[in-house]
Design a protein around this nucleic acid. Structure first.
Lengths: 165, 165
DNA sequence: GGTGAAAGTTTTTCTCT
DNA sequence: AGAGAAAAACTTTCACC
């Protein structure tokens, strides 16, 4: 094999790529012709750039953002979880368990005293309490859990900044 | 005016709607014809359902997910921020400041001792330190900031669970 | 790399059930 | 509400620059 067909970082991003990326990050279902005109291109080269960004792994995926409240998820909680052991196998075991729980939307390992931060959603406070005592506290290797209920969210931007070039 | 053209919750979601929602949450750029066949419909009624879900506010938006590392953002940090005053005007002032900072991706107000959890991204540790001392610590009304660096992320699901009906 | 035109799909509307 | 057919728009490929 010669060229990097899959997920090489390929070219440094030029300013047209950045327009494409920031546009698709905000409007994931924009048509290629509209995207092209915002990027100052015609459709074919725009499509080629999008495919290259997808194949190069810069664009990972596309998603619809759904209304939590419309789906009956009124509760969001951050849990700070410390584990008894920091051995890699034990960290993995905890992460594997988190992966199976639909209420757990994010699981990040942290440095310092607390080991994980976990973003959890639930239908209501009662459902969350039940989840906490039946799924999170008894998870493999858990030493302690501190939870904080989200009262309101003032900012929740998808993705990351796309700097102007 | 009569009907609720904008963001009424309209109908309870049936199982076809749920297939549409969970599919679009995972594959935001699927074509309507493919979506229709997964939902067991033909294209026209499928499109009508999607539009109704969009107009009803169940589908809020569509986004591309970009690779943080491909864009040079190697660092994610959660900051736990406590404020000097919990007066609504002071909470708002803090949130308004967070809204202006591109490094801040999420800002959630919490119950209990700590007032906000803020998800931050940065190019590297040095850029983060600089952000912390120049933007976050001196933000309006800040009493204290505790930061935790994310070592690795094992789960980061877009959106929320779509229960099977 | 970009352009313009052509071919192939998809989206979208309409009519009917 | 959903289906089939038709029109309009978009995507995708190709030849050329």
């Amino acid at each position: 094999m010669k060229g990097n067909a899959v997920a090489g970082q390929s070219q440094p991003l030029d300013s047209i790529d950045r327009v494409i990326l920031s546009t698709l990050q905000k409007e994931g279902r924009i048509t290629n012709v509209d995207l092209a005109s915002r990027a100052g291109l015609t459709a074919p080269p725009c499509l080629r750039r999008v495919r290259a960004l997808e194949d190069g792994g810069v664009i990972e995926s596309y998603h619809a953002r759904l209304s939590a409240s419309a789906l009956g998820y009124g509760i969001m909680v951050f849990a700070l979880v410390s584990l008894k052991s920091q051995a890699e196998a034990d960290l993995k075991a905890f992460e594997t368990h988190m992966a199976t729980l639909p209420e757990v939307r994010e699981c990040h390992m942290l440095n310092g005293e607390i080991d994980f931060i976990v973003k959890i959603v639930a239908h209501d406070l009662q459902a969350f309490q039940s989840f906490l005592t039946s799924q999170l506290t008894p998870a493999p290797n858990v030493a302690g859990v501190k939870t904080s209920l989200v009262i309101r969210t003032s900012k929740d931007e998808p993705g990351i900044p796309v700097d102007p070039a």
